[in-house]
Design a binder for these strands. Sequence first.
DNA 1: TGTACTTAAGTTTTT
DNA 2: CTTAAGTACA
Length: 763
Amino acid sequence: MQGILDNLNPEQLKAVTLARQCALILAGAGSGKTRVLTTRIAYLIQTGAVSPAGILAVTFTNKAAREMLTRLSAMLPINTRGMWIGTFHGLCNRLLRIHFRDADLPQLFQILDSGDQQSLVKRLAKAQGIDEEKFPPRQLQAFINNCKEAGLRANAVEASDEFTRRMVTFYAEYDAQCNREGVVDFAELLLRTFELLSKNLDILQHYQARFRYILVDEFQDTNKLQYKWIKLLAGTNGCVFAVGDDDQSIYRFRGAEVGNMNELVRDFAITDVVKLEQNYRSQGNILDAANAIIAHNKARLGKNLWTAEGKGEPLRVYAAPNDEDEARFIVEEVRSLNREGIALSDMALLYRSNAQSRVLEHTLFRASVPYRVYGGLRFFERQEVKHALAYLRLAANPDDDTAFTRVVNFPPRGIGTRSVEQLQDASDQGLGSLMHGARTGIVGGRSGAALKQFVETIDALRKSSETLTLPELVEEVLERSRLKDHYGAEKDGQDRLENLNELINAAAAFAEDFEHGLEPAGEAQEDVANAGTPEQQILAAFLAHASLEAGEREAAAGQDALQLMTVHSAKGLEFSAVFISGLEEGLFPHENSMLEDGGVEEERRLMYVAITRARKRLYLSYAGSRMLHGQPRYGIVSRFVEEVPAQLCKWLVLPEKQFENRGQTTFFRGGEKRGLSPNWSAGGGRAPQADPGRYRSAERATFERQRPDEQPFSIGQNVRHAKFGDGVVIDFEGRGLDARVQVRFASEGTKWLALQFAKLTAV
DNA sequence: TGTACTTAAGTTTTT
DNA sequence: CTTAAGTACA
């Protein structure tokens, strides 16, 4: 017992050992939030306050849920299986699988990810002859999701104008179509569960009695519906332990309501909010900067981070004449820090929007600095994987029209848009799903025959799904669908084939976990009375898994590499050294945010998150000009840089030296709320020129010294390629973007590689 | 029906 | 600049 409470500070201890009462823990960045959450669970179980089965812990990401489970099993020698720890969506999926009848869902309902949802919206909008100019599919999709996340069905949405009324109608038709197909989107998982519990008192009471303790992570990110969901499950006797930080609320654009924190305090009569303000991550100056910036926001719950550590280094601020120079500066600093012994993987290069990574990547590449970009395509989102999954989905549920349209003519089998339209028309007239139409031979001629073949393939797969193990079934899918043949024949299909093989492995691994009850759905299985064949159960669980957990981001080679990511994806992480780039008005804070009410405050919280990622070193940089959409844009320093107290900063180049004629160029600074004037002057505007004298020539000299780095590979050099492995450069031609190198690989033979595309690193 | 060209548009993201 | 989506043509 003593063990788990050791080394907690007084506030952490208070939070962990609270008596049975609802609580809001205001946990600042780096204050040991996850530790408090997991220790609280361990404490409750160890003191016998509750059995593991009485715990419900909700997170936003699978990663956070896994982290919690890992730490928990390190703390307690218990079986974590009975515990409900997971994401909102994962837990809802679990509930709906158990109570599919009461939720009015087919047993093997499928989950649409955002991409699937968008194709469904597009298909439906087209079928209804909706003007895509007036109602862009993206907007329709957003409208539906916003409604659902507010807990509103179409019949509950108030529409005052014609435009909204049309969208509401569409929403109703969309839902009807989902029901026909037996599919649910992400927001539907939550709304459907909420309705299930609202309408079935016995089920609600069962779970209210079971989950005596409900814990919520990142509470500031909950949306309206999620909060209602928590409230419903907690009931009058529940005990909610919410951990959050209003200063780190950066997801308002996807429906997060910081106001839920105040609601919670009111609804659950919380009398004292526990504040965790001691920061164990950043040194003093960094923390002071964060506090100073966030102090500009109004309507905060109020919290000030402090540290027992010293002040540490000052913040480094660099004003670059342009984006390329900014990148060059960062790369030099990264190398210098690396020489001082900081691992590349312990440094992060942050930016506001993904588009900014290109210049940075280019410069890093030329300088042979290994890096890893977060935010790429994930495994289950890859085209070839989604195709294979669509066949699996049809095997599980032939009425899944989204899956049907995706693969009915992929690989190409002579079924064109015309034929699919015929099926669609028939379906619109109430003649059933697309698959049903294909089966009944609505389409004649060659296409009709091809369709018949397709139906037979799916039927065969469906039969196989009843008996084959999951990995066997996946293999069968790859063969029968001819996906393997198709990608095998494609000249650049090797990577895709590898991913398809990887899917078999993923299926095997999943089946294994499922059998051992490691997958939560494995337990849910016990609760289901009438379950179909076990093989079909596993298939449904696997498909849900593929939608809910898109898989780890593309794993780079395990080497030490600089971490590149948006500020959003940096949330929750920490690094010894952090570079925040592109600190210009219009970029960060983003220009679009200035039009929204409270938009700049959200951007400021984003800046706060960025700063508090750093342990020891923090760099802020901005560029006088930046290439955007192929044209130069001229910007001025972000207000966020100016909000940092001057005494915390060390300017590496004095700003006035770079922008000599700044006073002559007219720049606008948007207001916090109105922001009517653009903060970027367009391409034709006058640039803040660098001082043609001293500064420029000094920079030129630096560029000259950098020259050799432009051609990082010389003959005889050892290099590494992400796919082909290690090799040696044996020839070279071209310059700049056209440059190609010939590399002899240890295992893959000799290849010519375009430097522009191939990710080669020096070894 | 599939390929090649043109054109438009371009925050942040998890489930 | 890049990418995606849509249109014209073989």
